[in-house]
Design a protein around this nucleic acid. Structure first.
Lengths: 254, 254
DNA sequence: TATTATTGTATCATATTGATACAATAAAAT
DNA sequence: ATTTTATTGTATCAATATGATACAATAATA
């Protein structure tokens, strides 16, 4: 579990108060025992990356996550979190898996995080409870996003999927599961439309697929298949300023 | 949400007591706001079916479901429920989707069920709360199972997926989602191994696929593909007592 | 013994995929 | 101004997979 997005707005205020009343207020605002975590995929032009947060005084790395308001749809809660981290509203979002094992519950870790931010949580603090976590993955256009660390002054940065820092709790397993699911669900149009800018070259498109599938593809056959799919509209060539033959620009239909 | 499997053991006893103490005890035994529902697929030899329960005095049809013990893994809770309904322990089980919209919350329906079983639940009864439901689907060999209605004397019966009764709440949507997921994940070996008896004819195997995909397949090409897959072991012919050429029996490797 | 519907296999034509070759070309190097 | 370069777009051949059809084998029945 990560710190809730909610913190961004209210945590600092509450941190100045005694813990119990704040604890009780927050406990009433969210569904207990239910969290979500998001694996946010972006594509840099060459590599597949995900957003990872670091809790400043703890050296703990975690996925962005949060909690569900008592009158809030689960999906909306996740969108709220994504908006908070990325500034984007219309993000491609998919449920991935629910992690519900008892052994996820490690209150000491959450205690560390709370303490590192000036709290003295009692043993009955709601965030020290057992949580099940609904995991989502999101696909976003890397270039549109400036990741925003939250009010706890964590960092929030892109990391290559193959060069992640060690993540806290079971967040490493969560990333693996999200990547597996993305690979299994790999739909040409959806993935391309959400990870790439509106217009792109055939090479960029191929790099997206190679990054996700984790293997090199035959250039000529990839091109043939994509062109035959009917998903692409071809635009004018771009003269990129690089040497060699200039590529066409493409975009997805619709 | 359906009545919890837990009811089977304790509900009748509790029903004799005043509601509040029982309410409070149960509230402590389960994670609040979290439920699961199971779409249990079976194959009859011709049709794909699912298990549906009927609450006797309500004419309400529902999927089997339940709640998660406070010290119980989510997956184990679902297996506990399946064992209860089918008697089987090693069941192929897959997570499907989490339904988490606020509009699922319809306390009146649950109130009706509780009342129909002799309860007078107060407005604060834990089962009248908002729940998110983690949906699983299971594949089981129809012939191995005798569905067990629970102690509330509901019925628990197989229904053709294309001839379901109207299900309560969003359970109709849940079935659609489970079927979609099954189709998308359709893995030859896993599906065949779990829906068919150990040995089966090529015709039975084809019928499983046709039932799941909802379309007829070309017999000869299906046979060619399955034989070429290397997944099947061929056994002796069976002389079924029917006219015409006797088919071979097959089974999956491993 | 002939009939019947089912089963197993073969064989076409057509699509899809893998591997390779090659011409076109934008800018840099000469 | 011409040559060189790596990249891009396209074509083509072989190998494989798929769709459609034909047909022989056969277990029990008529």
């Amino acid at each position: 579990m990560t710190l809730p997005f909610f913190y961004t707005y209210t945590f600092f205020i509450m941190a100045k108060q005694k813990d119990s009343p704040a604890n009780n207020n927050e406990r009433k605002n969210f569904l207990p025992h239910i969290a979500f975590d998001s694996v946010i995929f972006g594509f840099s032009g060459e590599k597949l990356k995900i957003l990872v947060m670091e809790y400043h005084n703890t050296r703990l790395f975690a996925l962005p996550g949060g909690f569900v308001g008592v009158t809030e749809n689960l999906n909306d809660a996740v969108r709220r979190g994504l908006k908070e981290r990325t500034g984007l509203s219309n993000i491609y979002l998919q449920q991935c898996y629910v992690f519900g094992d008892v052994k996820r519950h490690r209150p000491a870790v959450m205690h560390t995080i709370l303490q590192a931010n000036g709290h003295q949580p009692g043993d009955d603090h709601w965030m020290l409870d057992r949580f099940i976590s609904v995991v989502y993955y999101a696909l976003i256009n890397y270039t549109k996003v400036t990741p925003r660390p939250d009010a706890l002054s964590d960092s929030c940065e892109w990391y290559d999927v193959d060069a992640l820092p060690k993540l806290m709790l079971d967040h490493g397993t969560i990333v693996k599961k999200a990547l597996d699911t993305l690979r299994k669900n790999l739909d040409e149009q959806i993935v391309g439309m959400n990870l790439l800018p509106k217009q792109f070259t055939m090479k960029e498109l191929q790099q997206v697929y190679e990054a996700i599938r984790g293997e090199k593809l035959q250039r000529t056959n990839f091109q043939r298949k994509m062109l035959a799919s009917g998903l692409l509209i071809r635009h004018k060539k771009i003269f990129s300023g690089k040497a060699h033959k200039a590529p066409y620009l493409y975009q997805f239909v619709q």
